[in-house]
């Protein structure tokens, strides 16, 4: 209880594994903390991984964590387990979307306001965020274009490292490849992004 209070006031960061153990023991608030800690980064990873509906990936990933919570024995890190689930969901989604010509502009985006994809693109293009300046928007567009030019394995490693904050060891475990291979892919991704974004650096 004391550690929970310390975690709430932010003085002692509780590990993901401890929070999930609390959730397994019946504490639903631990899952809330875990969601708030990882949902946004997980969505960014899903978006960079090419998922058409990154929110759906986040939802499915967390629902699987909730349903299969008894199967997690704490042998791996919770974040690695969560991103492995999300990665598999992205792979399944990309296989399903392979035979789709493109996202429908009339399809709902899954957000709260029931806006269509066309509405969101129009609103985002004009800059609904008041604090976002023009340079940032230009850099974001150039960055997304450069990321789209990266190979899938390099883009995945870069997204997990820079957008989700996983270590190279965690990336290697989540993607089931060697850690040195992860670093090599990161090196090539950085080189290509540096060359593509040299005007913004």
């Amino acid at each position: 209880m004391l550690s929970w209070l310390l975690m709430v006031i932010g003085e002692e960061p509780v590990s993901d594994e401890t929070l999930f153990a609390r959730y397994q023991s019946g504490d639903a608030r631990a899952m809330t903390t875990l969601y708030d800690r990882h949902a946004r980064a997980l969505r960014a990873f899903a978006q960079q991984r090419g998922a058409a509906r990154p929110d759906d990936v986040v939802q499915d990933a967390f629902l699987r964590v909730v349903r299969n919570g008894a199967g997690f024995q704490g042998q791996a890190k919770f974040r690695t387990w969560l991103y492995t689930i999300a990665r598999n969901l992205c792979i399944d989604a990309s296989r399903r979307d392979r035979f789709r010509a493109g996202p429908s502009l009339d399809a709902p985006t899954g957000s709260d306001d029931n806006r269509t994809l066309g509405d969101r693109i129009a609103n985002d293009s004009v800059g609904t965020d008041a604090v976002r300046n023009l340079a940032d928007r230009e850099f974001q567009a150039a960055f997304e274009a450069a990321m789209a030019q990266l190979p899938d394995e390099q883009r995945e490693v870069f997204a997990l490292r820079e957008l989700s904050g996983l270590s190279f060891a965690e990336i290697a475990e989540a993607t089931a490849i060697n850690e040195n291979t992860v670093k090599s892919r990161m090196r090539y991704a950085l080189k290509q992004l540096r060359e593509a974004l040299i005007d913004f650096l």
């Binding site: 960014a44 929110d55 957000s111 709260d112 965020d129």
Partner: peptide, 10 residues
């Protein structure tokens, strides 16, 4: 870079 938040329904 701004990271879009996940929908509240999720």
């Amino acid at each position: 870079l701004p990271r879009p938040d996940v929908a509240s329904s999720v």
